[in-house]
Design a protein around this nucleic acid. Structure first.
Length: 426
RNA sequence: GGGGAGAUACCAGAGCGGUCAAAUGGGGCAGACUGUAAAUCUGCUGCUUCGGCUACGUAGGUUCGAAUCCUACUCUCCCCA
């Protein structure tokens, strides 16, 4: 019982802006004993996205503080569907999709946690492993009996759906997730569940179950919802979600997402998404305020997370691409790239094959290649002076010639700074 | 079951016989300014062989002419029983 944590987790999370609320006594628990805590992940897609980073980081901090983290992948809960924050009934995924998603997510989770750290090594568990052996009747007798419908109805996730309707399946979700906590508490001495603030209701059903059925005490801790200062939703880019999987969001796009963080948000995000200590961060914020145009915060933030998720090589590609595109990008520097470099830099940029380029008008190309929606739109864009060929602005009367092909093979089209498209000569 | 209101572009929402490819706001895109930020300002936001063509819930009708009037249908919302 002579445990002493590496740091006060609750305090640490508070200054980082990662603390929303906790059950009373959680802080003391974490100071007094090595605690096993877990976070659940929903296998809704075959990759985690940056919205999942916060719960992951909670686990990372838990482990760094000296406790034992468990990442739970929801093989069972994924079959049911969490209604939290959803306005309407969800489409159920079939079990082979769930299994596939589960495996992918498991690999991603593993890169963030330390599985070889003695007593507080991380673990990954799948709640399907214990749910597969529980029959429906057993469940409603042994678990359902302890939680009243009145209690379940009071949850926001249910209340918000009372008007529009909700299936019994989703209604029972909180019981299923609650049982996870109970099971882990009983079998693995897990005392803490963490998650985003939207999970509070589900987590508390778990502590309630531990109290009533197990006559014990479960603790909980949630992180606030990450917001953007302009009110739009965090974690989305033009193309939708920002994924951790390099195949779905290239390291370059990933890096750019963070690079585009506003100053205001960057000061908050650097605390949330990096493990830099307080002194380092305070200093960096100060430097940034003194010379905002240097974008020190954005650069540090982007570099840190990109390396964490995509490794050094992913980061280097992202930097190379960014320098080409946002540095003094000239036709010259594009042409100096080797073919391999070019394609690795523009990985993830939409491409289109073309057979003849000599003499073809820019409007035709834009519309027919699928770069812009129609000729009208292409003309509009050209009128706005927003279209470039190989980083040089062109006008409506521009016709391509074979000399525009870089390495005799490809052409970079851009609309504005951020929309890119590649033509490849076949 | 009875009564009422409505359905317009990505969204909200005006228009109520021609001047309507449709006001205004939001969103989106681009330009300027900057720092790949924020704020601000400006432009654009159906397609086109640039002649036109297709669009205002769906199908018909009246009219020289309809988003606007009439009929039917479908759907949505509200009130009463």
């Amino acid at each position: 019982m002579d445990f002493s944590p590496n740091y006060n987790l609750v305090e640490e999370l508070k200054w980082r802006g990662l603390f929303h609320q906790a059950v009373p006594g959680t802080e003391n628990l974490l100071l007094e004993e090595m605690t096993t805590g877990y976070v659940g992940f929903d296998p809704t897609a075959d990759s985690l996205h940056i919205g999942n980073l916060v719960p992951i980081i909670l686990l990372v901090h838990l482990q760094r503080a000296g406790h034992k983290p468990i990442a739970l992948v929801g093989g069972a809960t994924g079959m049911v569907g969490d209604p939290s924050g959803k306005k309407s009934e969800r489409q159920l995924l079939d079990s082979s999709t769930i299994t596939h998603n589960l495996e992918s997510q498991k690999k991603q989770l593993e890169q963030f946690l330390d599985f070889d750290k003695g007593l507080n090594s991380a673990e990954v568990v799948n709640n399907y492993d214990w749910f597969k052996n529980i029959s429906f009747l057993d469940f409603i007798r042994d678990v359902g009996k302890h939680i009243s419908v009145n209690y379940m109805m009071a949850k926001d996730s249910v209340k918000n759906r009372l008007e529009d309707g909700m299936s019994f399946t989703e209604f029972s979700y909180q019981l299923v997730q609650g049982y996870d906590f109970y099971h882990l508490w009983k079998e693995k001495n897990v005392k803490l569940q963490m998650g985003g603030s939207d999970q509070w209701g589900n987590i508390v059903t778990g502590t309630e179950l531990i109290r009533r059925k197990g006559n014990g005490k479960g603790f909980s801790l949630t992180a606030p919802l990450i917001t953007k200062s302009d009110g739009s939703k965090f974690g989305k880019s033009e193309g939708g979600n920002v994924w951790l999987d390099a195949k779905k969001t290239s390291p370059y796009q990933f890096y750019q997402f963070w690079m585009n963080t506003s100053d205001e948000d960057a000061e908050r995000y650097i605390k949330i998404f990096t493990l830099h200590d307080k002194a380092y961060i305070d200093n960096l914020i100060q430097e940034h305020r003194n010379a905002p145009h240097m974008r020190l915060l954005q650069k540090d933030l982007s570099a840190y997370i990109t390396k964490w998720v995509h490794g050094e090589s992913g980061y280097n590609t992202a930097i190379a691409a960014s320098n080409i595109l946002f540095g003094k990008a000239t036709s010259e520097s594009l042409r100096n790239l080797s073919e391999d470099d070019f394609f690795s830099i523009f990985e993830g940029v939409k491409k289109h094959q073309i057979f003849e380029i000599q003499g073809v008008n820019i409007v035709e190309i834009c519309a027919e290649s699928g770069f812009l929606a129609s000729k009208s739109e292409a003309k509009r864009a050209l009128k706005e002076n927003s279209v470039s060929v190989n980083s040089e602005k062109v006008t409506e009367d521009f016709n391509f010639s074979n000399t525009d092909l870089i390495n005799d093979k490809y052409i970079l089209l851009q609309r504005g700074k951020k929309n890119k498209f590649i033509l490849i000569k076949k």
